[in-house]
């Protein structure tokens, strides 16, 4: 086991709770992919960035798309370039060598990397079930074949694999069976204070407290379709902090500037705004 695994404790801009740190630790030691679920804005994607940064590994991100085929994530055979090269003969590539025209996809890159890398497979739920299961096979065996050249690409070092999913629906059983699982709950105000502190060192304490309190109040407004998440709070604080006219006690007086930073859907925005205008009357 690599020594530096134990050192993982969160990145510069990522606050890691103890529980999650241990799960990351265990998954890395067991060499199993870690599946993270949780509502948007709980830092699922950020975790992979933090691990990579913390352990000085390269991060390779595979953003899953619904139309994606597994082969795209493994490698691509660039027939077109080869055809053009054979016609014009003006490139340095050797047209007779197919390998020159095989490009590694994200999983392929992770496998062929000389050092251990972090492979983030983001939003796996977007792809269909076949994609998910086939991918897990590949990740299990840590190898795949390039059909055109009959070469087997084998992982030199097992990458640290983080998989994220937004779906409320469970993934398939064989998939789950091969992953470790963690559900990231939305951070509580105390945790949020720490997160804010990491992002805004030296932020005015009153402002932070007031903003967080207002933020959680706004999150609880009934009937909101898209509740503001950590990302929105950070952007909002950035807006508040950069406004020279803004004074913290205005928050206490139930006045919330830049609501649009928090609420991205117009019905939500109106709902939140109307609640505050009522409160002032």
């Amino acid at each position: 086991m690599n020594d530096n695994i134990a050192d993982f404790s969160g990145g510069r801009t990522y606050v890691l709770d103890n529980e999650l740190a241990r799960i990351v630790h265990i998954s890395m030691a067991l060499e199993m992919p870690l599946l993270l679920k949780g509502e948007p804005g709980t830092g699922k994607t950020m975790l992979a960035h933090a691990i990579a940064e913390n352990l000085n590994m390269e991060l390779i991100v595979l953003n899953v798309k619904s139309s994606m085929k597994l082969i795209d994530a493994l490698y691509q055979y660039d027939t077109l370039t080869r055809l053009n090269d054979s016609r014009f003969g003006d490139s340095n590539r050797d047209v007779s060598n197919i390998n020159e025209y095989i490009r590694m996809g994200k999983i392929g890159q992770a496998f062929s990397a000389a050092q251990r890398v972090v492979l983030l497979i983001d939003e796996i739920d977007k792809a269909d079930t076949d994609f998910q299961d086939d991918m897990l096979d590949i990740l299990d065996q840590m190898q795949f074949d390039i059909i055109e050249t009959d070469i087997t690409v084998q992982a030199k070092v097992r990458p640290v694999i983080i998989i994220t999913s937004n779906a409320k629906k469970d993934l398939s059983d064989p998939f789950l069976g091969r992953c470790n699982f963690h559900h990231i709950a939305f951070p509580d105000p105390k945790m949020m204070r720490q997160i804010i502190a990491v992002h805004f060192p030296g932020l005015d304490e009153n402002l932070a407290q007031g903003a967080i309190a207002t933020f959680y109040k706004l999150r609880d407004v009934e009937g909101i379709e898209k509740r503001p998440a950590t990302r929105e709070l950070i952007n909002w604080l950035r807006a508040l902090a950069s406004d020279p006219d803004f004074k913290t006690d205005r928050l206490v007086e139930e006045e919330v500037p830049y609501l649009g930073v928090l609420f991205k859907k117009s019905p939500d925005y109106k709902k939140a705004a109307s609640i505050y205008s009522q409160a002032r009357k």
Binding site: M1, E19, R22, I23, H25, I26, S27, A29, L30, M32, L34, L35, D170, L176, G177, C179, N180, F181, H182, H183
Partner: peptide
């Protein structure tokens, strides 16, 4: 898998066990 984790000395106390067992056994 949980036993593998136990044998590899990853789990030192009950807290560790709680977290490890949950992430390995419980998938939702």
């Amino acid at each position: 898998t949980l036993h593998k984790a136990l044998n590899s000395g990853l789990i030192e106390n009950l807290d560790d066990f709680y977290i490890a067992a949950r992430s390995i056994l419980v998938k939702s």
